[in-house]
Nucleic acid binder design. Structure first.
Lengths: 144, 144
DNA sequence: AACATTAGTCAATCTCGTTGACTATCTACA
DNA sequence: TGTAGATAGTCAACGAGATTGACTAATGTT
Protein backbone atom coordinates (compact mmCIF):
# COMPACT_ATOMS: atom_id res chain seq x y z
CA UNK A 1 0.00 0.00 0.00
CA UNK A 2 3.06 2.22 0.01
CA UNK A 3 2.93 2.67 -3.72
CA UNK A 4 -0.31 4.59 -3.90
CA UNK A 5 0.67 8.15 -4.69
CA UNK A 6 -0.19 10.74 -2.07
CA UNK A 7 -2.31 12.86 -4.41
CA UNK A 8 -4.56 9.88 -5.01
CA UNK A 9 -4.83 9.39 -1.28
CA UNK A 10 -5.68 13.03 -0.79
CA UNK A 11 -8.33 12.81 -3.45
CA UNK A 12 -9.95 9.73 -2.01
CA UNK A 13 -9.73 11.01 1.55
CA UNK A 14 -11.46 14.18 0.55
CA UNK A 15 -14.25 12.14 -0.95
CA UNK A 16 -14.96 10.71 2.49
CA UNK A 17 -15.66 14.18 3.78
CA UNK A 18 -17.43 15.18 0.61
CA UNK A 19 -20.01 12.44 0.74
CA UNK A 20 -20.50 12.81 4.47
CA UNK A 21 -21.20 16.49 4.02
CA UNK A 22 -23.47 15.92 1.07
CA UNK A 23 -25.45 13.32 2.96
CA UNK A 24 -25.77 15.53 6.02
CA UNK A 25 -26.97 18.42 3.92
CA UNK A 26 -29.52 16.25 2.18
CA UNK A 27 -30.84 15.14 5.55
CA UNK A 28 -31.75 18.69 6.48
CA UNK A 29 -33.28 19.40 3.10
CA UNK A 30 -30.34 21.18 1.59
CA UNK A 31 -29.80 18.94 -1.38
CA UNK A 32 -29.19 21.80 -3.78
CA UNK A 33 -25.83 22.98 -2.55
CA UNK A 34 -23.34 23.16 -5.40
CA UNK A 35 -20.06 21.32 -5.19
CA UNK A 36 -17.97 24.07 -3.64
CA UNK A 37 -20.89 25.44 -1.70
CA UNK A 38 -19.93 23.89 1.63
CA UNK A 39 -16.54 25.56 1.49
CA UNK A 40 -18.03 28.94 0.86
CA UNK A 41 -20.75 28.52 3.44
CA UNK A 42 -18.26 27.27 5.99
CA UNK A 43 -16.00 30.17 5.22
CA UNK A 44 -18.75 32.70 5.58
CA UNK A 45 -19.90 31.04 8.78
CA UNK A 46 -16.50 31.80 10.26
CA UNK A 47 -17.14 35.51 9.73
CA UNK A 48 -18.62 37.66 7.01
CA UNK A 49 -16.38 37.44 4.01
CA UNK A 50 -15.84 39.64 0.98
CA UNK A 51 -15.85 37.81 -2.29
CA UNK A 52 -12.12 38.22 -2.63
CA UNK A 53 -11.65 36.12 0.48
CA UNK A 54 -13.57 33.30 -1.08
CA UNK A 55 -11.47 33.59 -4.19
CA UNK A 56 -8.26 33.12 -2.26
CA UNK A 57 -9.66 30.25 -0.22
CA UNK A 58 -10.93 28.37 -3.22
CA UNK A 59 -8.24 29.29 -5.67
CA UNK A 60 -10.64 30.02 -8.48
CA UNK A 61 -11.26 33.01 -10.70
CA UNK A 62 -13.31 35.82 -9.26
CA UNK A 63 -15.97 35.21 -11.85
CA UNK A 64 -16.35 31.62 -10.74
CA UNK A 65 -16.57 32.74 -7.13
CA UNK A 66 -19.13 35.36 -8.05
CA UNK A 67 -21.20 32.82 -9.88
CA UNK A 68 -21.01 30.40 -7.00
CA UNK A 69 -22.20 33.08 -4.61
CA UNK A 70 -24.92 33.96 -7.09
CA UNK A 71 -26.40 30.51 -7.02
CA UNK A 72 -26.03 30.28 -3.25
CA UNK A 73 -27.92 33.54 -2.93
CA UNK A 74 -30.51 32.35 -5.38
CA UNK A 75 -31.06 29.16 -3.40
CA UNK A 76 -31.41 31.02 -0.15
CA UNK A 77 -28.15 30.25 1.61
CA UNK A 78 -26.39 33.58 1.39
CA UNK A 79 -27.09 37.27 1.30
CA UNK A 80 -25.03 39.98 -0.21
CA UNK A 81 -24.84 43.23 1.66
CA UNK A 82 -22.85 46.29 0.71
CA UNK A 83 -19.85 47.10 2.86
CA UNK A 84 -20.26 50.60 4.31
CA UNK A 85 -16.49 51.09 4.50
CA UNK A 86 -15.77 50.25 0.91
CA UNK A 87 -18.56 50.55 -1.54
CA UNK A 88 -16.82 48.31 -4.03
CA UNK A 89 -17.10 45.45 -1.67
CA UNK A 90 -20.10 43.20 -1.22
CA UNK A 91 -19.87 41.36 2.03
CA UNK A 92 -21.51 37.98 2.08
CA UNK A 93 -23.44 36.69 5.07
CA UNK A 94 -25.49 33.60 5.91
CA UNK A 95 -29.26 33.41 5.89
CA UNK A 96 -31.10 31.13 8.32
CA UNK A 97 -31.02 28.40 5.77
CA UNK A 98 -27.35 29.07 5.29
CA UNK A 99 -26.75 28.64 9.01
CA UNK A 100 -28.70 25.39 8.91
CA UNK A 101 -26.51 24.14 6.11
CA UNK A 102 -23.35 25.36 7.78
CA UNK A 103 -24.27 23.52 10.97
CA UNK A 104 -25.08 20.31 9.16
CA UNK A 105 -21.88 20.48 7.21
CA UNK A 106 -19.79 21.27 10.25
CA UNK A 107 -21.35 18.41 12.15
CA UNK A 108 -20.61 16.03 9.31
CA UNK A 109 -16.97 17.05 9.27
CA UNK A 110 -16.81 16.79 13.00
CA UNK A 111 -18.27 13.29 12.90
CA UNK A 112 -15.67 12.07 10.46
CA UNK A 113 -12.94 13.77 12.47
CA UNK A 114 -14.20 12.09 15.61
CA UNK A 115 -14.23 8.70 13.94
CA UNK A 116 -10.71 9.27 12.72
CA UNK A 117 -9.50 10.30 16.15
CA UNK A 118 -11.23 7.32 17.69
CA UNK A 119 -9.41 5.01 15.36
CA UNK A 120 -5.96 6.53 15.39
CA UNK A 121 -5.71 8.82 18.33
CA UNK A 122 -5.40 12.53 18.76
CA UNK A 123 -1.71 12.92 18.19
CA UNK A 124 -1.76 11.11 14.94
CA UNK A 125 -4.43 13.36 13.55
CA UNK A 126 -2.76 16.51 14.78
CA UNK A 127 0.44 15.45 13.14
CA UNK A 128 -1.37 14.70 9.91
CA UNK A 129 -2.77 18.22 9.97
CA UNK A 130 0.77 19.52 10.27
CA UNK A 131 1.83 17.46 7.28
CA UNK A 132 -1.01 18.84 5.21
CA UNK A 133 -0.16 22.39 6.23
CA UNK A 134 3.44 21.80 5.25
CA UNK A 135 2.30 20.46 1.92
CA UNK A 136 0.29 23.61 1.34
CA UNK A 137 3.31 25.64 2.34
CA UNK A 138 5.39 23.81 -0.25
CA UNK A 139 2.88 24.70 -2.89
CA UNK A 140 2.96 28.33 -1.88
CA UNK A 141 6.74 28.31 -1.98
CA UNK A 142 6.85 26.86 -5.46
CA UNK A 143 4.60 29.58 -6.78
CA UNK A 144 5.94 32.52 -4.79
CA UNK B 1 -4.53 27.17 12.64
CA UNK B 2 -6.35 24.35 14.33
CA UNK B 3 -9.70 25.60 13.13
CA UNK B 4 -9.15 25.06 9.45
CA UNK B 5 -11.27 22.05 8.56
CA UNK B 6 -9.44 19.01 7.31
CA UNK B 7 -11.31 18.84 3.99
CA UNK B 8 -10.06 22.33 3.19
CA UNK B 9 -6.55 21.22 4.04
CA UNK B 10 -6.90 18.18 1.83
CA UNK B 11 -8.12 20.32 -0.99
CA UNK B 12 -5.29 22.81 -0.72
CA UNK B 13 -2.68 20.12 -0.23
CA UNK B 14 -3.82 18.39 -3.34
CA UNK B 15 -3.42 21.60 -5.26
CA UNK B 16 0.29 21.54 -4.44
CA UNK B 17 0.63 18.23 -6.25
CA UNK B 18 -1.75 19.31 -8.98
CA UNK B 19 0.21 22.34 -10.01
CA UNK B 20 3.54 20.55 -9.69
CA UNK B 21 2.29 17.81 -11.99
CA UNK B 22 0.78 20.26 -14.42
CA UNK B 23 4.01 22.25 -14.58
CA UNK B 24 6.11 19.13 -15.07
CA UNK B 25 3.86 17.95 -17.88
CA UNK B 26 4.01 21.32 -19.58
CA UNK B 27 7.80 21.17 -19.43
CA UNK B 28 7.88 18.03 -21.53
CA UNK B 29 5.33 19.38 -23.97
CA UNK B 30 2.30 17.65 -22.54
CA UNK B 31 0.21 20.69 -21.79
CA UNK B 32 -2.98 19.15 -23.09
CA UNK B 33 -3.59 16.58 -20.39
CA UNK B 34 -7.13 16.93 -19.01
CA UNK B 35 -7.65 17.44 -15.31
CA UNK B 36 -7.96 13.83 -14.26
CA UNK B 37 -5.57 12.67 -16.95
CA UNK B 38 -2.57 12.21 -14.65
CA UNK B 39 -4.56 9.86 -12.45
CA UNK B 40 -5.57 7.72 -15.35
CA UNK B 41 -2.14 7.76 -16.92
CA UNK B 42 -0.53 6.92 -13.61
CA UNK B 43 -2.99 4.14 -13.10
CA UNK B 44 -2.39 2.66 -16.49
CA UNK B 45 1.35 3.01 -16.01
CA UNK B 46 1.06 0.69 -13.02
CA UNK B 47 -0.34 -2.03 -15.29
CA UNK B 48 -2.77 -2.19 -18.20
CA UNK B 49 -6.20 -1.38 -16.90
CA UNK B 50 -9.71 -2.05 -18.09
CA UNK B 51 -11.99 0.97 -18.10
CA UNK B 52 -13.86 -0.35 -15.12
CA UNK B 53 -10.71 -0.10 -13.03
CA UNK B 54 -10.40 3.56 -13.86
CA UNK B 55 -14.00 4.07 -12.87
CA UNK B 56 -13.42 2.63 -9.43
CA UNK B 57 -10.20 4.57 -8.93
CA UNK B 58 -11.70 7.89 -9.90
CA UNK B 59 -15.17 7.38 -8.53
CA UNK B 60 -16.87 8.75 -11.60
CA UNK B 61 -19.50 7.40 -13.97
CA UNK B 62 -18.37 4.99 -16.63
CA UNK B 63 -19.36 7.48 -19.28
CA UNK B 64 -17.10 10.11 -17.81
CA UNK B 65 -14.26 7.60 -17.62
CA UNK B 66 -14.89 6.57 -21.20
CA UNK B 67 -14.85 10.16 -22.35
CA UNK B 68 -11.67 10.85 -20.45
CA UNK B 69 -9.98 7.89 -22.07
CA UNK B 70 -11.32 9.08 -25.41
CA UNK B 71 -9.59 12.40 -25.18
CA UNK B 72 -6.41 10.80 -23.87
CA UNK B 73 -6.43 8.47 -26.84
CA UNK B 74 -7.14 11.36 -29.17
CA UNK B 75 -4.23 13.32 -27.79
CA UNK B 76 -1.86 10.44 -28.13
CA UNK B 77 -1.37 9.31 -24.55
CA UNK B 78 -3.29 6.07 -24.50
CA UNK B 79 -4.26 3.19 -26.74
CA UNK B 80 -7.25 0.99 -26.47
CA UNK B 81 -6.73 -2.63 -27.27
CA UNK B 82 -9.29 -5.38 -27.13
CA UNK B 83 -8.87 -7.91 -24.39
CA UNK B 84 -8.56 -11.38 -25.94
CA UNK B 85 -10.03 -13.06 -22.86
CA UNK B 86 -13.17 -10.97 -22.73
CA UNK B 87 -14.24 -9.29 -25.90
CA UNK B 88 -16.39 -6.81 -24.02
CA UNK B 89 -13.36 -5.36 -22.39
CA UNK B 90 -11.06 -2.75 -23.85
CA UNK B 91 -7.78 -2.73 -22.05
CA UNK B 92 -6.01 0.59 -22.00
CA UNK B 93 -2.24 0.94 -22.41
CA UNK B 94 0.25 3.78 -22.67
CA UNK B 95 1.77 5.07 -25.86
CA UNK B 96 5.32 6.48 -25.90
CA UNK B 97 3.93 9.90 -25.25
CA UNK B 98 1.86 8.45 -22.45
CA UNK B 99 4.98 6.99 -20.88
CA UNK B 100 6.68 10.36 -21.19
CA UNK B 101 3.79 12.02 -19.41
CA UNK B 102 3.63 9.30 -16.78
CA UNK B 103 7.32 9.73 -16.04
CA UNK B 104 7.08 13.49 -15.80
CA UNK B 105 4.09 13.25 -13.55
CA UNK B 106 5.67 10.62 -11.35
CA UNK B 107 8.81 12.70 -11.02
CA UNK B 108 6.78 15.73 -10.02
CA UNK B 109 5.02 13.80 -7.31
CA UNK B 110 8.28 12.36 -6.16
CA UNK B 111 9.83 15.81 -5.96
CA UNK B 112 7.08 17.13 -3.75
CA UNK B 113 7.24 14.00 -1.63
CA UNK B 114 10.97 14.46 -1.25
CA UNK B 115 10.58 18.07 -0.22
CA UNK B 116 7.98 17.05 2.30
CA UNK B 117 10.17 14.34 3.72
CA UNK B 118 13.10 16.72 3.86
CA UNK B 119 11.06 19.15 5.89
CA UNK B 120 9.28 16.81 8.26
CA UNK B 121 11.06 13.51 8.18
CA UNK B 122 10.18 10.09 6.96
CA UNK B 123 8.13 8.91 9.88
CA UNK B 124 5.85 11.86 9.84
CA UNK B 125 5.01 11.35 6.21
CA UNK B 126 4.49 7.63 6.61
CA UNK B 127 2.13 8.27 9.46
CA UNK B 128 0.24 10.84 7.42
CA UNK B 129 -0.21 8.24 4.70
CA UNK B 130 -1.73 5.94 7.29
CA UNK B 131 -4.11 8.65 8.39
CA UNK B 132 -5.22 9.23 4.83
CA UNK B 133 -5.74 5.53 4.29
CA UNK B 134 -7.82 5.35 7.43
CA UNK B 135 -9.87 8.27 6.22
CA UNK B 136 -10.54 6.45 2.98
CA UNK B 137 -11.45 3.37 4.97
CA UNK B 138 -13.96 5.41 6.95
CA UNK B 139 -15.55 6.57 3.75
CA UNK B 140 -15.83 3.00 2.51
CA UNK B 141 -17.37 1.92 5.78
CA UNK B 142 -19.99 4.63 5.66
CA UNK B 143 -21.11 3.60 2.21
CA UNK B 144 -20.82 -0.18 2.50
C1' DA C 1 -32.12 -21.67 -25.25
C1' DA C 2 -33.66 -17.72 -22.25
C1' DC C 3 -32.37 -14.35 -18.89
C1' DA C 4 -29.64 -11.56 -16.12
C1' DT C 5 -25.20 -9.31 -15.54
C1' DT C 6 -21.25 -6.90 -17.00
C1' DA C 7 -18.49 -3.81 -20.26
C1' DG C 8 -18.76 -0.15 -22.79
C1' DT C 9 -20.88 3.50 -26.22
C1' DC C 10 -23.94 7.35 -27.95
C1' DA C 11 -26.43 11.46 -27.36
C1' DA C 12 -28.29 15.11 -24.78
C1' DT C 13 -27.94 17.93 -21.03
C1' DC C 14 -26.11 20.31 -16.92
C1' DT C 15 -22.90 22.19 -13.82
C1' DC C 16 -18.93 24.53 -13.53
C1' DG C 17 -14.97 27.27 -14.44
C1' DT C 18 -12.40 30.20 -17.63
C1' DT C 19 -11.25 34.22 -20.48
C1' DG C 20 -12.07 38.86 -22.06
C1' DA C 21 -14.14 43.16 -21.65
C1' DC C 22 -16.32 46.31 -18.74
C1' DT C 23 -17.98 49.55 -14.55
C1' DA C 24 -17.34 51.41 -10.11
C1' DT C 25 -14.66 52.59 -6.27
C1' DC C 26 -10.64 53.55 -3.76
C1' DT C 27 -5.51 55.00 -3.20
C1' DA C 28 -1.42 57.48 -4.10
C1' DC C 29 1.21 60.74 -5.99
C1' DA C 30 2.06 65.05 -8.60
C1' DT D 1 -7.15 68.69 -6.52
C1' DG D 2 -7.04 65.69 -9.99
C1' DT D 3 -5.47 62.17 -12.43
C1' DA D 4 -3.14 57.24 -12.91
C1' DG D 5 -3.36 52.97 -11.34
C1' DA D 6 -4.86 49.35 -8.44
C1' DT D 7 -8.80 46.80 -6.50
C1' DA D 8 -13.73 44.73 -6.24
C1' DG D 9 -16.94 42.92 -8.71
C1' DT D 10 -20.22 42.14 -13.00
C1' DC D 11 -21.68 40.60 -17.77
C1' DA D 12 -21.40 37.60 -21.60
C1' DA D 13 -19.59 33.92 -24.24
C1' DC D 14 -17.41 29.81 -24.30
C1' DG D 15 -15.37 25.29 -23.15
C1' DA D 16 -14.27 21.29 -20.41
C1' DG D 17 -16.02 17.75 -17.92
C1' DA D 18 -19.57 14.89 -15.58
C1' DT D 19 -24.30 13.05 -15.39
C1' DT D 20 -28.42 10.64 -16.86
C1' DG D 21 -30.90 7.68 -19.93
C1' DA D 22 -31.13 4.56 -23.55
C1' DC D 23 -28.66 1.37 -26.19
C1' DT D 24 -25.36 -2.72 -28.12
C1' DA D 25 -22.53 -6.53 -27.36
C1' DA D 26 -20.45 -10.19 -24.88
C1' DT D 27 -20.52 -13.30 -20.91
C1' DG D 28 -22.56 -16.35 -17.27
C1' DT D 29 -26.20 -18.71 -15.34
C1' DT D 30 -30.00 -21.48 -14.96
Amino acid sequence: MDDVPIPALLRAARRTYGSAIRAALAEVGCDDVPRNGPFVIGDVARGGTPLSGIIRELGVSKQAAGQLVDTLVLRGYLERSPDPDDRRRLTVTLTDRGRLAADASRRAVWTVDAELTARLGDECVTQARAVLLELIEIGDDRVG
